[in-house]
Design a binder for these strands. Structure first.
Lengths: 243, 243
DNA sequence: CGGGGGGTTGATGGACATCAACATCTGTGG
DNA sequence: CCACAGATGTTGATGTCCATCAACCCCCCG
């Protein structure tokens, strides 16, 4: 019954077949449920002793600020994702985490997490796998910033989001609801907001994809996929590796 | 006796105080020692059932190729680093790994690694931490590509390399030996080789850093650090978290 | 009704890519 | 020992993608 599972348990099941006990441990991590409003960051760059979170509802982004005021969004997170894992493994957080919508998240303390790993090593492997998935996304993002132009970057970004949302049941091949502003897109893609606007217009006028009124509509998946050189295999396993 | 330790054991000790037994398990992972020559990639994008490696000697880079022939180097690895961890946790590798110099590396099979984790959960936590360090570097790299100009990117890259090399005893604050070509720099920094050449000349003429004849010499660490907004804290813990 | 957040469009400029030519150095085979 | 090719580094000329600045729009909300 996948819908009885928490989104996190569901996600980790892609890598490891988890026992009842292990599932229970994951459930226990959801006790400290908290809500956050837009504008109240969960984690702050440079602060020590931060907790991690498991996102249950809503969207957040993790980002870094530079001295000149510009910012770079590193990653967008959606339900089922781990937030701020690095900020508990390191002493001080190396990034900020900001809610894009109102969110619900469960707080996980560093010692609880490490304690769970020592009693249930398969969970440690599964979380290592999940962290590797996140890293794969960051890598793909990095390749975009380094070697793709604005159109390709945008196309890739929207396709990746679409795929991830579908995996947790929040989208269809035709599109998805998207609370991001053009400023978010600009900060994620390393562009100016003005240029984001122009690129979106081009993609719309070319009949590839429309992003308007908080809704992304994919008109031509094939051409878009080709334009972005998008290959979804880094988001999507074919059955668990750890039995 | 840190010099009796393998570079990997030394690195993981920054996060967890490891027992004799755990050290022994790490040592066992070094049995399948292999050498690779320049031009023979260790891991190939798209291939399945790849092994991971622990790098003992030499430099490698992991990169992705795009359809148009351009490439993006994601990460440079130096002795003590894990190679291709994602390619064993995923079924198929999502990147290539190429030796920059002749190298020595120990092959680690996926099942051996996961087996070690289940018997020695603290090792799993430690490797998760090491993977998080790698991710932090990729994130810093991503911020550079998104929001820093060519000079700042180059300065940051050279300072990061310098810091990492010093942590494994392969450099001094004054500089280090560096086998990278200007093409490597270009592919890592998302620039053209021509522009890399100009930026290096500028940095040299400004008396900040010289990269010539396989040698990086840092002339003015303070100004360079300021230019790059470089903060070494993501590379460097202050004592183990897991006791 | 005013103000602020988000979106849209045009004009201008700059950082960096691209193309092209040439210099150096290395190894290699005649 | 020299000729040659290939890899690497250097410099100039030209072009382009995208940033920046500046308006102006709409909509929502206090």
């Amino acid at each position: 019954m996948p819908n009885a599972l928490s989104p996190l348990a569901h996600k980790l099941s892609n890598f490891a077949i988890l026992s009842e006990t292990e599932m229970g441990v994951l459930d226990d991590m959801h006790r400290r449920r908290r809500n956050f409003a837009v504008g109240h960051d969960l984690v702050l760059q440079g602060q020590t002793r931060q907790a991690a979170f498991i996102l249950a509802k809503g969207w957040v982004c993790s980002y870094k600020l530079l001295r000149d005021g510009s910012r770079q969004i590193v990653d967008i997170q959606i339900p089922g994702d781990f937030l701020g894992l690095r900020s508990v493994l390191f002493r001080t957080a190396d990034h900020n985490i900001e809610p894009i919508t109102e969110i619900e998240a469960s707080e996980v303390l560093g010692k609880d997490l490490l304690g769970a790993f020592s009693k249930h090593p398969r969970l440690a492997s599964a979380v290592l796998w999940a962290a590797s998935c996140d890293e794969a996304m960051v890598v793909e993002h990095l390749v975009g910033l380094g070697r793709r132009n604005a159109r390709e970057r945008m196309a890739h970004f929207l396709l990746e989001l679409s795929t991830r949302l579908m995996l947790v049941g929040l989208g269809t091949p035709a599109g998805f609801a998207c609370p991001l502003t053009q400023y978010h897109l600009a900060d994620a893609l390393g562009l100016s907001a003005v240029h984001v606007n122009r690129v979106l217009r081009e993609l719309r006028e070319d009949g590839l994809v429309t992003f308007q009124y908080g809704q992304v509509t994919i008109h031509n998946l094939d051409v878009l996929t080709d334009l972005a050189e998008f290959d979804r295999s880094y988001l999507d396993q074919e059955g668990p590796l750890l039995r």
